[in-house]
Write a protein that binds this DNA or RNA. Structure first.
Length: 897
RNA sequence: GGGUCCUUAGCUCAGGUGGCUAGAGCGCUACGUUGACAUCGUAGAGGUCACUGGUUCAAGUCCAGUAGGACCCACCA
């Protein structure tokens, strides 16, 4: 890449970091060099993540941004660690959602419906739409830096994928796990299709409980029933009471008159009825209520369906035929009222089933649909998690998973839509071309014989996506490529997803994987929290509280967005997001950018700065920072293995900002007018490069850019394909780290004194360091590093030794067994100093007291592990020693006064 | 009706297997234009870790319960 000129200092970043200027360029670079591509024959150990395929109708939202950031960080890190890291992208045809979008588009543009067009024409229009808009979200994902292997992109409607779905259906049917039947299903009157139980949300609403009188058929009197849905009474075929309810004992076996329609219905006894609820009598509508359906079946009741597929009352509703269900309700209540049949009305909280797609109220409706028998599939899926072959992170989601699977119900998979996978079932036709229901249907991928017609319905979208982990890798084809891909890349390693699709997708993939391939689809499941707005509400279009990731990328940069999302993503907790959170990432990116200048200004472009010195020849601060670097590498590796990316990233953040910038860079900066040695530059470059590598998985763009600014690289020698840094025990001296931290504390102490006494930062001061005779290494370190004190605390006269006396008018600070005196002739305020010392003493005394109480406790000494007791003893000794010095200093002060 | 999660500094949140004088970012206070960075630096103030019990030598961390809040599941008309 270009540099801003030649000659020393030309590498310096002269402006603040501007993500816009580089992000697009590097993404192109990675793609051009095909760095995301993977091969089953590389020989490297694979690491595979299946991207949850976004809907073709989707637009990038914060949830994607979070999950992609995690998946990309994992993929990039594994790639750097030498794995053949495949992040498999693709998209989902999203049956209902897509059909709705296209229907709306056609209606808006030409005012016609899909029925005007006809099925074939409509489906072809959906394909046009998918071709035109389906890739938008995948394009948007590139802005985030997603390093997935785009050459493997799949779509759930690809020919090979369609075949996989068809074959799965046929196989399940042949195994007796798919059946067809008339059952009460969740009906969405707006989309005019059946839905699965999972696609229905129950919402609590304010409703009413109407007490309706049903006159007895013989004699006078009536039975009162309570209902929340009076419109369903049109389909009532019985009244049920509890067999032991004395009030109604003599009515059992008699008939009542169904008001409005005048039909006679029997009064039956069933112990499902709760005696103390409502009026104690229950109207039974087998066609429109799940419990009533079961009661009806028990008693052989008639089933009267009063509703059409569009939610209007049908011909069984007599005078109410043709009315919309809600209008019918109002009319029925009004009519009952005028006939004096409403005994009373109470306000009542009702749980209303809502279609998660159309948000309309679901109607339980009896209809002929296809179902999957789930229990046989669920059993192995439960076992796979119980046995530990699959692990959830965090673990608690396993409970939710078990709960659902252990009580699983059959899955209604047929949808009365046009866009989706056709059901591979064929029917014979009669002479008129109508389906001949007297003959058996045939289940087959291909048309069994001419003239047979295929089932009109399509399959639930999830019936295709549950095959995603293996169908995208070529299953069930047996050509060489498919065989290799499956053998190498399946099972995959980790699935990253939200808990919102735990049942829809995650659990079903496990069932499908085990059933069709005999293998688990993935080893680990990382369940992320969900992104909420800053008040903790779901982001939604209707609330208008969404935060657009693309806008955030424009404003703060992709790396900043990624940084902040990663840092905010703690183990499974939801994230309350506010746009200002991205300032964290932006500021950090800028810090990384600017830190480079400290040594870049002394670098000559083109020169290869490589360290010649061994660890032992390094300066104290250099040994210390290497210690910090190496221990951070270990920590990062450990955290990432447990999917604690927030921990990993904050460790690198601290290393970079708190250690590298605040201390190391401040100390290696040459004094005014002097240069940095090549040796010093070499180490700075080495450290910086390593941190760039550690940061790359999290912040790929800025690190790639800087990687190429540091050195001239051969074309294609990208940061993203470098080896992941390993920690080197030989470059970790605990002793050096410890010594340096003593000096660090002394410097902080002096700075504190300066601040307390308002000594201007520009004013040099003197300091005397009285080192314990037990710490000759500290003494030596200070003697040879006076410059540290000068640079960071503006100490121009430093006296150091053992047994030094404290000067009269001075402030002091105790660091372990050592003391630092700062003479402040004329500036010392005895009261201020006394207060400072007293505060310190009080604190330490309290601390010591606690430890001593603990140590005096025989139970503690005998039961706590030896190392813990030892640690406490050491703390006590150290603090007592510090206290002694502090008290002496305080004493000294009164003499000085 | 079951179940899960949350309650830690003014705000938003971290704190695997109990050993912490409890941390971060933002905000706040006081200084600061020292040739990387004001998207910055230095120093600092600020928490009886919701409450009540229990287990333990030791509890923010484990257990039970209470109170708020969020969510998931469930057929009470």
């Amino acid at each position: 890449m270009e540099s801003s000129g030649t000659g020393k200092g030309s590498l310096v970043n002269r402006e603040a970091y501007d993500p816009k200027a580089i992000e697009g360029r590097w993404y192109d670079f990675w793609e051009r060099h095909r760095l995301f591509d993977t091969s089953a024959s590389s020989g490297r150990e694979p690491h595979v993540i299946m991207m949850p395929p976004p809907n073709v109708t989707g637009r990038l939202h914060m949830g994607h941004a979070l999950q992609d950031t995690i998946q990309d960080a994992l993929t990039r890190m594994r790639r750097m660690q030498g794995f053949e890291a495949l992040w498999m992208p693709g998209k989902d045809h999203a049956g209902i959602a897509t059909q709705n979008v296209v229907e709306r588009a056609i209606r808006d543009s030409e005012g016609s419906t899909r029925h005007d067009l006809g099925r074939d024409a409509f489906v072809s229009r959906v394909w046009d739409w998918v071709d035109e808009y389906g890739d938008i979200i995948l394009q948007q994902k590139r802005r985030l830096g997603d390093s997935c292997d785009w050459s493997r992109e799949r779509f759930t409607m690809d020919d090979t994928y369609v075949e996989a779905v068809q074959r799965v259906f046929v196989r399940l049917y042949e195994e007796g796990l798919i059946y067809r039947g008339d059952y009460l299903v969740n009906w969405d009157p707006e989309n005019r299709t059946a839905l699965s139980d999972e696609e229905v949300d129950n919402v609590e609403r304010d409703g009413h409980l109407w007490y309706v009188r049903y006159p007895l058929a013989e004699g006078k009197g009536h039975v009162t029933v309570a209902t929340t849905r009076p419109e369903t009474m049109l389909g009532d075929t019985a009244i049920a009471v509890h067999p032991e309810d004395e009030r109604y004992a003599d009515l059992i076996g008699k008939n009542a008159i169904l008001p409005l329609l005048g039909r006679e219905i029997p009064i039956i006894a069933d112990d499902y009825v709760k005696i103390d609820f409502g009026a104690g009598a229950l109207k039974i509508t087998p066609a429109h209520d799940k419990n009533d359906f079961e009661i009806g079946a028990r008693h052989g009741l008639q089933v009267v369906n009063v509703m059409s597929v569009d939610g209007t009352i049908n011909e069984n509703g007599g005078p109410y035929e043709g009315l919309d269900r809600f209008e019918a309700r109002d009319r029925i209540v009004a009519d009952l009222e005028s006939q004096g049949l409403i005994e009373k009305t109470e306000p009542y909280k009702v749980s209303v089933p809502i279609s998660s797609r159309s948000k309309t109220t679901i109607e339980p409706l009896i209809s002929l649909q296809w179902f999957v028998r789930m229990e046989p599939l669920a059993k192995p899926a439960i076992e796979a998690v119980r046995s530990g072959r699959i692990t959830f992170y965090p673990k608690r989601w396993e409970n939710e998973y078990f709960r659902w699977l252990e009580d699983i119900r059959d899955w209604c998979i047929s949808r009365q839509l046009w866009w989706g996978h056709r059901i591979p079932v064929w029917y014979y036709t009669d002479d008129d071309g109508d389906i001949d229901e007297s003959r058996d249907f045939v289940v087959s991928v291909d048309q069994p014989e001419p003239g047979m017609v295929q089932d009109e319905d399509v399959l639930d979208t999830w019936f295709s996506s549950w095959l995603w982990p293996f169908a995208t890798l070529g299953w069930p084809h047996d050509d060489e490529e498919a065989k290799n891909d499956l053998a190498v890349f399946y099972p995959t390693h980790v699935l990253v997803s939200g808990y919102d699709i735990l049942f829809f997708w995650i659990a079903r993939m496990i069932m499908a994987g085990l059933h069709f391939t005999g293998k688990i689809p993935y080893r680990d499941i990382f369940i992320t929290g969900m992104i909420k707005d800053k008040l903790g509400r779901w982001m939604s279009k209707s609330l208008g509280n969404g935060i657009d990731p693309l806008e955030m990328i424009d404003e703060y940069g992709a790396d900043a967005v990624r940084y902040s999302l990663t840092i905010l993503c703690a183990q499974g907790q939801d994230i309350k997001l506010d746009p200002t959170k991205f300032e964290m990432g932006r500021n950090f990116a800028n810090k990384i950018w600017n830190a480079f200048n400290v040594f870049a200004q002394f670098m000559e472009p083109g020169v290869e700065y490589r360290r010649a010195r061994g660890f032992k020849d390094l300066d104290l601060v250099e040994q210390w920072i290497l210690h910090q670097l190496n221990s951070t590498i270990e920590q990062v590796n450990e955290s990432v293995d447990r999917y604690r990316l927030n921990e990993a990233l904050s460790a690198v953040y601290d290393l970079f900002w708190r250690d590298f910038c605040d201390w190391y860079l401040e100390l290696i900066k040459p004094a005014r007018g002097s240069e940095m040695s090549e040796e010093a530059i070499a180490l700075a470059v080495e450290l910086y490069e390593k941190m760039i590598l550690l940061l790359h998985p999290f912040m790929p763009f800025i690190t790639e850019e800087l990687w190429h600014r540091i050195r001239v690289r051969p074309d294609g020698d990208a940061c993203m394909v470098q080896s992941w840094p390993s920690s080197d025990p030989a470059e970790m001296s605990d002793a050096a780290a410890k010594t340096f931290s003593v000096l660090k504390d002394m410097i902080s102490g002096i700075r504190n004194i300066r601040a307390e006494y308002s000594v201007p930062p520009s004013k040099p001061i003197a300091a005397i360091i009285n080192v314990s005779d037990r710490q000759p290494d500290v003494l030596a370190a200070i003697e040879s590093h006076r410059v540290y004190f000068e640079k960071l605390a503006r100490v121009d006269r430093l006296e150091v030794g053992t047994g030094l006396a404290k000067p009269g008018a001075s402030a002091s600070v105790v660091v372990g067994r050592n003391e630092v005196y700062v003479p402040l002739a004329g500036m010392i305020d005895l009261d201020v100093e006394r207060e400072r010392l007293q505060k310190e003493i009080d604190q330490k005394e309290q601390f010591v007291l606690r430890i001593q109480t603990k140590l005096r406790n025989q139970q503690f000494v005998s039961k706590a592990p030896g190392e813990v007791v030892e640690r406490e003893r050491k703390k006590e000794a150290d603090t007592v020693a510090e206290l002694k010095r502090l008290r002496a200093n305080l004493e000294d002060l009164s003499h000085a006064g």
